[in-house]
């Protein structure tokens, strides 16, 4: 028993201090985030308040620069271009990815080969994919134009044509993301319980009805995830523009990020405002994603 000299009073115990270790473990990440995420975000807001003349002198422009840039036809044009680009690439990408996933969702001889091919574009970087399409769409030697010629059509300079350029870049983008969309949709399909489809079969539902009434609803979280990821990445598109069209012809493919890029060193004030506009848009989209992820986590536990 406890000896009388030790007394019987409550011994207050300080919990073992873990914060120094926590600090040590978090410090590297925090340092990187502070220097390359939080500080630059604030700095960007501040840079947006200054105008830079061609000689590199900085002048206070205040919020006026924000109003000016955001209402300028150039910015509105590039925002509109970005939105159109998104509206083309996202639905097309979702449909194509889902179609491939459904098509390859059967245990057939040799299916592994098809699935590997469908997923293969995840291995292509934006630069690789863009150069492949640059070659395909080349006005004289590109395969696409050679097919057109063989069919007796005039060749089209897809990437140099005001109304063809954006769809052409969009096509390359859909292809670039197809592997990702296929993989995500496939994983989603594999998590739809077979029993559900079998019981629908027994209930007399045909393939089409099973697809719309069982597969698609069960897949809706996956589709939503792919939708958000593809949308955000459409808003961030840059490499394909830089390699295929440099924003041209006549600014018809001048998406927001490309416009930011062109202004980074020459006109950081304007670039900052444009970047912040992009931030607000992506933030909104990300919040949608988080809400959805939160729900997933909730369902999952």
């Amino acid at each position: 028993m406890v000896g009388p000299d030790e007394g019987d009073v409550a011994v207050a115990v300080s919990p073992r201090r873990e914060w120094p270790l926590a600090l040590l473990m978090l410090a590297p990440s925090i340092a990187v985030f502070v220097v390359f995420v939080f500080y630059p975000l604030g700095r960007t807001v501040w840079l947006g308040l200054y105008e830079v003349d061609p000689f590199g002198n900085r002048y206070w422009a205040g919020l006026g620069q924000y109003a000016e840039v955001l209402s300028s036809p150039a910015f509105r044009g590039s925002l509109w271009t970005t939105v159109v680009f998104t509206l083309i690439t996202v639905p097309a990408g979702l449909v194509a990815g889902l179609a491939l996933a459904v098509l390859a969702h059967r245990r057939l001889r040799g299916i592994a080969v098809f699935r590997t091919l469908f997923a293969s574009t995840v291995a292509t970087s934006v630069a690789v994919a863009s150069l492949m399409w640059l070659t395909m769409l080349n006005p004289s030697t590109g395969v696409v134009n050679q097919v057109l010629k063989a069919l007796g059509q005039d060749p089209i300079n897809f990437l140099g044509h005001p109304s063809w350029a954006l769809p052409a870049v969009a096509l390359a983008t859909v292809w670039l993301h197809l592997g990702f969309t296929f993989i995500v949709m496939s994983a989603g399909l594999q998590s739809v319980p077979d029993e559900l489809l079998e019981s629908a079969r027994i209930d007399g539902a045909g393939p089409w009805m099973r697809f719309w009434h069982v597969t698609v609803p069960m897949l809706s979280p996956t589709i939503l995830f792919a939708l958000v990821v593809l949308t955000i990445s459409a808003f961030q598109s840059f490499g394909q523009i830089d390699l295929l069209t440099q924003g041209g012809p006549l600014g018809h493919t001048n998406v927001v990020v490309y416009s930011v890029f062109r202004n980074v060193s020459s006109n950081p004030g304007v670039a900052s405002v444009q970047a912040l506009a992009l931030f607000v848009i992506v933030l909104g989209l990300t919040l949608v994603q988080f809400r959805y992820l939160e729900r997933r986590v909730f369902y999952g536990s």
């Binding site: 960007t44 890029f261 202004n263 980074v264 900052s272 970047a275 931030f279 992506v282 933030l283 919040l287």
Partner: peptide
């Protein structure tokens, strides 16, 4: 929520 495109200027 901060894409790297946003912070490239700074």
């Amino acid at each position: 929520m901060v894409p790297s495109e946003v912070t490239i200027v700074a």
